[in-house]
Amino acid sequence: MQPISSVKGKAYPLGLKNVDTDIIIPAVWLKTISRSGLGKGAFQTLRGVAGNVFDDPAYAGAPILIAGDNFGCGSSREHAAWAMADLGISAVIAPSFSDIFSGNAFKNGLLAIVLPQDAIDRLMEVAKTDDIHIDLETQTVTTPFQDRFAFEIDPFRKHCLINGVDEIGLTLKSSDAISAYENKISASQPWLSPNQA
């Protein structure tokens, strides 16, 4: 994972609630066996509509997306995070995220920033004309107009994002603890080992 500590630039003012994973990347795009190239299918259904923010030249290449409540609800497809990254998005700001999406975003170095609805409303306004700045180190979102919104992030996730930590590598350092757990369980609950059908 690439380290990430701040994102600055234009933002797509989408604002929509319940943006589900079928909106982010429709199922026909899930047949790939690689992680790249999904940007072409990103937000396909929304892009079909005239006047959508993704095809508005004013926001071309924006690294930030602003959305409504419950962003990324629906399926567990990590393709949603891959597609957004492929489109050039590095951060999403919304009042809430589905649990699975925020996990997937984190694993791909995509920031999922939670801010209250009034902050979202303000940022939607600002995004029409100006850049937005997200700083992970200080946990703030700022604008050129003195707006300053603080956000929460799990300290472990923050550490991994800023340092670009390989989580599997990190967990593998706990191999002994995992083995000890396995040994304990195979003694106390031997029936947990599945019969091979």
Binding site: G74, S76, E78, G103, I178
Partner: peptide, 30 residues
């Protein structure tokens, strides 16, 4: 797959994960 929650009908703690987590579980079982 997000509908893994299904297995909770048997009283299992079951949940959907993304592909990075699939890889994590394959490699570490955790």
């Amino acid at each position: 797959d997000s509908h893994t929650a299904c297995h909770g009908g048997l009283g299992a703690l079951a949940f959907g994960i993304g592909t990075s987590e699939v890889e994590h579980v394959l490699a570490t079982q955790t």
